[in-house]
Amino acid sequence: MKKEFWFVIITYVIMQLSGGLAVDIIAKITVSAGAELTNELKTLIGAYWIVFSFIIALIFVLFFMRNEMRMKDMRNQTTIPVSILWGFGGIFLAMFAQIIAGLLEQKMGIKQNSQNTEQILKLITQFPIVMLVTSIVGPILEEIIFRKIIFGSLYKRLNFYLSALISSVIFGIAHFEPEHILLYSAMGFTFAYLYIKTNRILVPIFAHVTMNTLVVIVQLNSEKYLDSLDKAQSFIGGFL
């Protein structure tokens, strides 16, 4: 794997692990400045750190990937009109994959509510700016890491199915909900298929961004969701 890819992965891991430490440090600085550290203030600090850390991580990732992005194999790329069609079609493919995986999980006796999704939606209701991460920044980072880097590197040595399986399972594990590994893996398979079908990372990025945005909008405007957060059925696949 290229050294630039390792820089990207390390950046992503540091960003994911920085939350607790950063919030504690900022909280201590706030207290030393004379402010009262309430639960509301700590939640506020956490929300804004999520936005800040994800944006900074994206800037670093794009910097590390700048040369890679310039090296395009135009011969294997689908045309722009076809890529746009695959991008929109990919939204429905990802949703369909969620439905099938969800039905299989139900058959296996796995509860369909996702704590990850519920926590994200609760945070967005308090701090709408977090939607910038769940709908845009998060999906871009995940597609670069899990599809372009991990899947792309595996695909050079293995066939599509094995490469997609390994990268999709890693994608699922990264969401820290092992009980829903099947659902997250199904989405990972879909995005990997879009990437290999078009040879354009922008296609799965577009599908991922749009899917997450639709999930957030539907859930936040659903009376069923507002009545009971623990009944959320759709999953957000672009935020950890």
Rank of each mutant, 00 (worst) to 15 (best):
A101K: 13
G102C: 04
G102V: 01
L103T: 04
E105I: 03
Q106S: 05
K107T: 07
K107F: 06
G109H: 00
I110D: 00
I110Q: 10
Q112D: 01
N113S: 05
N113E: 04
S114Q: 05
T117M: 06
T117S: 15
E118V: 11
I120L: 07
L121V: 01
K122S: 13
K122I: 13
K122W: 10
L123Y: 02
L123H: 03
T125E: 11
F127C: 01
F127L: 02
P128S: 09
P128H: 02
I129P: 00
I129K: 04
M131E: 01
M131D: 00
L132E: 05
L132T: 08
V133G: 05
T134C: 01
S135D: 06
G138P: 08
I140M: 02
E142F: 12
E142R: 14
E142Y: 08
I145C: 14
I145P: 10
R147Y: 14
I150W: 10
I150A: 12
G152W: 11
G152E: 14
L154C: 10
R157G: 04
R157A: 15
N159A: 09
N159D: 12
Y161G: 01
L165M: 14
I166P: 12
S167I: 08
S167T: 06
I170L: 14
I170K: 10
I170F: 12
I170V: 12
I173F: 14
A174L: 05
A174D: 01
H175M: 09
E177W: 08
E177R: 07
E177F: 12
E177P: 11
P178F: 05
H180T: 14
I181R: 14
Y184A: 09
Y184H: 04
S185W: 06
A186H: 11
F189D: 01
F189W: 05
F189T: 08
A192K: 05
Y193C: 13
Y193G: 12
L194V: 13
L194Y: 10
Y195F: 15
I196K: 15
K197Y: 07
T198C: 10
R200K: 14
L202F: 13
V203K: 06
V203E: 05
P204W: 11
A207M: 01
A207H: 08
H208E: 09
H208L: 09
T210I: 14
M211N: 10
V215R: 09
I217K: 01
V218N: 04
L220N: 03
E223G: 08
L226P: 03
L229G: 09
L229W: 08
D230N: 06
D230L: 06
